[in-house]
Design a protein around this nucleic acid. Sequence first.
DNA 1: CTGTTAGCGCATTCAA
DNA 2: TTGAATGCGCTAACAG
Lengths: 387, 387
Amino acid sequence: MAAAALAAIRSPTRRLTYAPGHGHRYTAPAAHDAASHPTRATVSQTKRMTLKTVAARLGVSAATVSNAFNRPDQLSQARREEILAAAAALGYHGPDSRGRMLRTGRSGIIAMLLAENLFYSLSDSVASELIAGVAAQLDQHGHSLMLLPGRLEQSGGGVDMADGVIVYGLHGASSRILDLIADRPAVAIDIDLPGIPAVHVDNYPASLALARHALRHPPQRVAIVGLRLTQSHVGQIGLEALLSADLTVTRRRLDGIFKALTEAAIDPDSVALWNVDQNTYEGCVPVVAALLDQPAATRPDLLICLSDRIALTAIDLAERRGLRVPEDLRITGFDGIAEGQRRRPRLTTVHQDNTAKGRLAAAMLLDLEPRRSRTLDTELLIGDSAP
Amino acid sequence: MAAAALAAIRSPTRRLTYAPGHGHRYTAPAAHDAASHPTRATVSQTKRMTLKTVAARLGVSAATVSNAFNRPDQLSQARREEILAAAAALGYHGPDSRGRMLRTGRSGIIAMLLAENLFYSLSDSVASELIAGVAAQLDQHGHSLMLLPGRLEQSGGGVDMADGVIVYGLHGASSRILDLIADRPAVAIDIDLPGIPAVHVDNYPASLALARHALRHPPQRVAIVGLRLTQSHVGQIGLEALLSADLTVTRRRLDGIFKALTEAAIDPDSVALWNVDQNTYEGCVPVVAALLDQPAATRPDLLICLSDRIALTAIDLAERRGLRVPEDLRITGFDGIAEGQRRRPRLTTVHQDNTAKGRLAAAMLLDLEPRRSRTLDTELLIGDSAP
DNA sequence: CTGTTAGCGCATTCAA
DNA sequence: TTGAATGCGCTAACAG
């Protein structure tokens, strides 16, 4: 098995492009061209249908049509059905959200203000699970979800349409954030904002427990790979470069690990500290590769990664190099993302229930939970990567 | 290595909950309680700040304030700065989107109408990559993304606020969808809607090429695991249960496989056909487990999965059972999701660039691309799971 | 360069 | 039970 596996591991992926090599291919325009289809409305729509035009056509007042849609009790059953039927026939499908929103002040939208741009946030497993958690709660209550990137331009991107805002993670200009969400219900996740209730996880004790477990099997050489422990430098770093603990969650994880190291009589100064600035496979590869490509004499035999993505990248690259996990290299992660638990070797990590975090934050905004700060529990998952 | 690996594989995950066992823990309310903080506005906000109130306070007209924010050229530089400064001091942070939207008719929002509920869509790798692709395009153009679940209630969830709509995948009530997106730019993905341009992938030739590759190494017994090939039945199914090809994309993939089987002189009737109804790890486990737990004499040695998620689940469960991939069991997927290419054994699959699909659809709505139907290329990825 | 006017589409008074 | 009037916050057209 070992030989075959190694051979397979080393073979590069062959890529065979199917079909036309010349970029994207157009289908015959006629097949799907919008212009080639007749209008779908029953009546030809010369003018945009509105509550008022419908009312005019029916010879009733706008208020009555509005009531037909929103307040059945203000109207005779017969009249209501008559109006609804006529409206449908005219191609009017209900009051426009824009006008309704301006009038009522509510939109049914919950906005999520993400730390990064949307693409990164949706690609990152942790942020993604968090968003899914928020979505799960909104699903149940008929609310819509608006996603906003951290760097929003002057206009604010429409935060002010939202009935409530969830702020996730570290933001550059937090005073600007505060302005945007002023006088609007808000809940923060993984970040403290003055006057805003927050959903947190206790990173310090969780990583302390994890590191204690990892160190029960005494390592020869320890290396730590952190995420955004320092400003913009990628690769090996020194202790002096660390950002302060209130700026990044992984910094608090690091403190727990240092504590465990000290307990185990290992000088934190002696462990190699590496930094990654993007929690993506592509972002982790160069750092992890540099780390693993050291001569065996200096290469670590315990790799403490401050996120699961880093740890999973490490497992992949280690396997590619014929290093056995955990025999040659023990690896731990942090986050407990699903991907790490669905593959062999299963990741040893701390699970923080991101879906629950998102769900709770959304529940607070929907007034299903008291709007108070909370700290959720974590769970130590002992997998195969560091048994 | 083999023995140790197997031992590790079979050991269940141990779970140690860190800290308080009794559910969620509250932090001291004082620390984050909104009420305990003073208002942030410089001036006490008795009334909600609006363009008009700002104008009144400054003794200018509302239009001038509006121009200060939106049309710098309509105003002296000095006046503009004076107004902007005063507005900021008053705690007014720019025109409200709701009023602006009603007035201008544009919102800067692109809505994505998803086939499933939001939680499922965000958890599914394929949908997730698609959403990320849309987001990537919107990121670059300062638009916001609104996510809407397939089953939206009467109100429409706010589609009518969007400047454009992307419809993804099969929807239950497509006539309702058409009503919702009437007289509003729309692009469909993986589905044909009358009068709406669509972004597609050619599933048939792609799966044909994939199956041809898989069959070059003659199998003893083939099994196919499909996704939603039939209505609501999970497990082994017969050919007669198949839905028609225009209802589900995996059905077209199946046709390509049947073609390849026929070419290889294998009777499609003789291959076992299994069905999964949720493209999630949890959804795939029972079906794949049942399939793998057959006696060795009937267990397949080639497993053609109609999605990567199914294939990845199969790899995981096979490894847990000590089956070697690809020696004992060759496995192919479909989709080419990132997770399948970042682990050993790398998945043999067809890559469809979901991010590009999403990006293209969004580009069409933003008028960066002609709004015409297109079919994107696919790429055969030959990994280690079926070399 | 600045102010005035007039709605955008709707829901909510209040009167009939 | 229905209708007329009002304004939510804003911007485009025009007048000054």
